[in-house]
Computed example of a mutant assay.
Amino acid sequence: MTIAVLTGVFCAGLSILIAALLPPFEGYEVPIVALISGFTGSVLAQAVIMWRGRS
């Protein structure tokens, strides 16, 4: 559950940052940004899982 919350918070923060820095998205840009956000959130969650396993 903690990893899911961490991933969600990270993805939400990344999307807010992207929305603040870039102009509004159109067409195919929306799913591309969603894919990048989801991928990076998943990578972060996996890194946390691996890090917690080593502790």
Rank of each mutant, 00 (worst) to 15 (best):
S37Q: 12
V43E: 07
Y28Q: 04
F39K: 04
A19L: 02
L44H: 07
S15G: 09
I18A: 09
V48A: 14
V30G: 04
S55P: 03
W51T: 10
F10T: 02
W51Q: 08
G27R: 08
Y28L: 09
G53F: 04
S15M: 15
T7L: 03
I16W: 11
M50A: 15
V30P: 00
A4N: 04
V33W: 03
I16E: 06
S55M: 06
C11K: 00
I3V: 14
A34P: 00
A34C: 12
F25T: 11
A4H: 07
P31Y: 07
L35V: 10
V5D: 05
M1T: 13
M1R: 13
S55Y: 06
I16Q: 13
L35G: 08
S37L: 12
I16T: 11
R52C: 02
P31H: 06
G53E: 06
C11H: 00
T2R: 11
V43I: 14
C11A: 15
A20W: 05
V33K: 03
S15Q: 10
M50I: 13
A34T: 09
G13R: 12
Y28T: 05
A19M: 05
L22C: 11
R54C: 11
S42K: 08
S42Y: 15
G8S: 12
A12I: 09
A34W: 10
M1K: 15
L44G: 02
G8D: 05
F10P: 00
F10C: 08
G53M: 04
A19G: 04
G27I: 05
V5A: 15
L21E: 15
E29D: 08
G13W: 12
P24E: 03
A12K: 06
L17R: 05
G13A: 13
G41H: 00
F39D: 06
V5W: 13
A19Y: 03
V43Y: 11
L35D: 03
M1Q: 15
G41M: 03
M1G: 13
A19S: 07
A12T: 09
I49A: 11
A34Q: 09
T40Y: 06
A4S: 08
V33R: 04
L22Y: 12
G8V: 05
P23Y: 01
F39I: 14
Y28P: 01
V33S: 03
L14F: 07
C11L: 09
Y28M: 05
P24H: 02
P23T: 06
A34Y: 08
A4T: 08
W51R: 08
V33T: 05
I36S: 04
A4K: 03
T2P: 02
G13F: 12
I36V: 15
A45F: 08
A34H: 10
A12N: 08
V9H: 01
